[in-house]
């Protein structure tokens, strides 16, 4: 029977070839980003579509780091993204827990309203948001971005956290409460450690969303001091030319925090922590 079930080698090879083709396709833009960042300015057009640059240089990185405002944009982005991720995750975790564990009057309406906020294209509401932010004098401040990003990420993050809380058996909290915990203690000592993968995923999702957001940052920020990195990238585009090498080098550098952040949270993303809690 085992012999009959063995997959033909050609099929196995085909499967791996398909996966390899997909990975190459998905990663090619990243490779191209790195390739152009390492190509000297003078060769960018002469090298054309050659897969490997004829000469390598770190000049673009040097210029971006030491002779542009990129590091300031970068700091702004880190501040905005980390603050947004922390605030959103905190609020979404509390809301997600409430949705998962309690029944209360108006729960369905709150859920429906939160879903509703996700249905509008951002372009539709950018004007009122601009008016609101201007009215309270927060234009050109990182705070405005943190508030707006947090508000827009909370609904999705809440549903994400709720699904994680739903996956944790109620019995665990009840056992803890019988063992002597208050509900808050049960939440802190038993439930929260089991929600770390969920918190990690939510943090990662919100951080990435805030890190790469352009539309609101473009509308709400004008001054060079408060620019985030996606807006800052546009400064490499001048009236008559685009500084491709430096733009790509800045892009590569922008990937670093995202990668570091995911490296940091990836151990919390590992699922299966709750296995063994309940039967089977």
């Amino acid at each position: 029977m085992a012999a009959l079930r063995r997959t033909p080698p050609a099929l196995v090879a085909g499967k791996y070839a398909a996966i390899a083709a997909y990975v190459a396709f998905a990663l090619f833009p990243l490779y191209w980003l790195l390739k152009i960042a390492l190509t000297p300015d003078t060769l960018i057009f002469s090298d054309g579509t050659a897969l490997w640059p004829s000469e390598l240089t770190l000049d673009n990185f040097r210029t971006v780091i030491f002779q542009s405002d990129f590091m300031a944009y970068f700091r702004n982005s880190v501040t905005v993204s980390l603050s947004t991720a922390a605030a959103t995750t905190l609020i979404a975790a509390a809301a997600g827990y409430a949705f998962s564990r309690f029944t209360f009057r108006g729960k369905r309406w709150v859920v429906a309203l939160m879903l509703l906020t996700q249905m509008f294209p951002l372009l539709m509401i950018i004007a009122p948001i601009y008016k609101l932010v201007a009215a309270i004098g927060l234009l050109n401040s990182l705070t405005s971005l943190i508030v707006v990003y947090t508000a827009f990420n909370i609904p999705f993050a809440t549903f994400l956290m709720q699904s994680f809380f739903d996956g944790i058996p109620r019995d665990l909290e009840e056992a803890a409460m019988i063992d002597g915990c208050t509900r808050l203690q049960a939440l802190r000592v038993v439930i929260l450690p089991l929600t770390l993968p969920g918190l990690g995923a939510t943090l990662g999702f919100v951080f990435t969303a805030a890190w790469s957001e352009l539309l609101f940052a473009l509308m709400l920020i004008n001054s060079n001091d408060a620019m985030t990195f996606p807006v800052g990238l546009l400064t490499f585009v001048s009236k008559f030319s685009v500084d491709w090498g430096q733009m790509m080098a800045a892009g590569v550098l922008a990937l670093v925090p995202s990668c570091l952040f995911f490296l940091f949270i990836q151990r919390y993303l590992v699922q299966g922590l709750t296995s063994g809690a309940v039967k089977g």
Partner: peptide, 10 residues
């Protein structure tokens, strides 16, 4: 209390 699901803290 002993629960049907055991409810052990994983």
């Amino acid at each position: 209390m002993v629960f049907q699901s055991y409810a052990l803290y994983p």
